[in-house]
Design a binder for these strands. Structure first.
Lengths: 216, 216, 216, 216
DNA sequence: TATGAATGAGAGTTCATTCAT
DNA sequence: CATGAATGAACTCTCATTCAT
């Protein structure tokens, strides 16, 4: 991909995260890059294309980062590592989570793309939970309950930030730590004794709690 | 409050839920009410004022509906009743949840109001959980964990819909049922044996699962 | 209709005739009237609506002016009077004839309207010719020939101007006289002896020829 | 002329006829040819130049095809052959007829070129009619009438298509046949008895009428 | 109270044209 | 010859807001 095309994407992400996707006009982006609007439209035929391209970039990074649980190996999942990576990604593309519904309303094409994303994520969670259940790290749950745990994982994992914004946690890093804790605490009650002992979930929680007081 | 002022609020809520808060123009609202734009601005000095007024209405309804757990009485919480009421309210003001961030970006004043709301809700959850813990319906949890359970309750309780929209559940009622199940399943692992036996949580889950297959 | 709405129409017609319909932007119109673009769009929701409104005005004037041949009365048609009126109308809305195809390409909705217009005009010519044939002013022609005479009448009657523009007849009035002569001469060979004697066609031709030399 | 230059012309004609001259951008042309815009501008310094070049090509073809009536030979004109050729040419450059006025408005330089074209055509018609009159195929007409018959020939011969488009004749070939009939019927009343008997005009009409019913 | 005409900034987008390479 | 990135003006259209009546 040409450099300029990539630049536009990066600057767009930056501005979208800063001022919101809808509130950022194509002129804003062009100005921020010091190029003409015409030039912007040379690379992307409309604003929606930019959003789609960003989402595709996001999805690709997602794929590369997919949890590496191996079906045949009995090992506890490294929650901390996974969430750190997950959060890093979510950070870069946070405007998606935050404006998801408004984006859908404005750009119907984008909806389909987002739907694909959710399917992918769901699949990932399902694999992960099944694996951990199989080897006794996770309590046995029926299909229906598992289904809702998966959806709750997605909801918490992608919508935590708005809560901490409204709770006036201004520091971005702090917010992110709290977001990770949201997920860790959410998972905790589903772990078996073995799970609690052999995974790093509890340690991770302790570590992050210390981080919070350090930041403060 | 004058009748006309109230009418504007109701019609605005209706339109915001239908087409989105940002996508609904002041002209839309005026037209839908059969009044002039000028008249609209006579009652509310700008669009933000309308949103704020709606939020205030929301908060007032919230207060009137606050959980009626009584500190001194040993009784299990009626989850089903509570959530039904909660969801009824959320339904009426769903555009808030769905466009929260975009609203904040466009209307900074509104942010403060929303912050107040979250404090209120948190307080409510805290009271509820403490009470249930005291009488042994809920497992004992340390302060920190309880904090995150409260935030998770808020996150799930207010952000579930976007998930089911993206999962292509088109039927609104169905979505709402699934939303309730999200919360019920979330709470479940925190219940003690006594809690499970004496509360109506499990029955509620069963009931709603049946409802889902009926709708289908 | 409000005054302003009418003003916009009149000014639009003026500019469309002057600089062409496609070359005239909504800003041009607004500027020429000394109003804001927003105000223009308050009256017409887009440019196409303006064009449609103009065409409707044109069609209405047309209806009011429809040839008054009376089926049951044996009288020669007053060519001169008819064409004078016809040309006056065509003059006001000349941009339609001149840019017809470009308008169609840009505004598909407009095509249907124009189609209706042609049907109306065709009908009128048919009535006229039939009547004149019945009373022996016009030579007897078979259905097929009559059909093509009708279409030729339309073509000459609405497309004459481009010819005289290209022939460098700069004077608008002169062009219009020549346009009338185009039609009169076109009709001439279809008249019977009776038609030539009793109608004012030949006199009209003479009169207009004199007018031309006077203008020069 | 270089091959590439010719290619650009041909593709432009194709696109202009398809989507309209104004609606076709320089980028469209370049893309359709698989070359760059810059390259297009290397061959033609602007869009107008392309249009002018097309018109010149048109005029050249016209010259090569000029009616071969020989002053000194008494022979009836072959209407059918002439019109078939004429229509073939008109078909290739139909966008000129259809967008003539819009082109003039957008490209003033082009006007002069078009004016030359009309002079040429007029001359041709004059020669033709004079010749046929001299040998008694055409009725004797005074100078003035002849002048208007020439202009009417041009008007019908170049503006027939818009009528049939608006009459919803979608089939291009059918439209062209009707266009030829427009001209043949137009000429018919000017033919003498000798002209009707010895020319192929009447046969041509019959032939084309049959063609129309065949296409249907 | 109520009207609705008017404003003006700004949105997304297109396009002929230029020019360094 | 050829590329294609870059420009900038112009286009259509929207919308929150104001204000004379």
């Amino acid at each position: 991909m040409s450099n300029r095309k990539e630049e536009i994407l990066e600057k767009s992400i930056e501005l979208f995260n800063e001022k919101g996707c809808i509130a950022t006009s194509t002129r804003h982006i062009a100005d921020a890059l010091g190029i003409s609007v015409g030039n912007l439209y040379y690379y992307y035929k409309n604003k929606e294309e930019i959003i789609i391209a960003i989402y595709e970039e996001f999805m690709n990074t997602l794929s590369g980062q997919l949890s590496t649980v191996r079906e045949d190996i009995d090992s506890s999942f490294d929650f901390y590592l996974f969430l750190e990576e997950h959060m890093e990604l979510e950070k870069k593309y946070r405007f998606f989570r935050l404006e998801m519904n408004a984006i859908i309303q404005n750009h119907p094409k984008q909806k389909e793309k987002l739907e694909l994303g959710i399917v992918k994520k769901s699949q990932e969670f399902r694999n992960l939970y099944s694996h951990q259940m199989k080897y006794g790290y996770l309590k046995k749950l029926d299909e229906s309950e598992l289904d809702f745990i998966r959806s709750n994982t997605w909801i918490i994992g992608s919508q935590w930030e708005i809560y901490w914004i409204l709770k006036k946690v201004e520091n971005e890093k702090l917010r992110r730590i709290k977001g990770i804790l949201n997920i860790l605490y959410f998972i905790k009650p589903y772990l078996t004794k073995k799970g609690l002992e052999e995974s790093n979930l509890l340690e991770s929680i302790d570590y992050l709690k210390k981080e919070i007081s350090d930041v403060k």
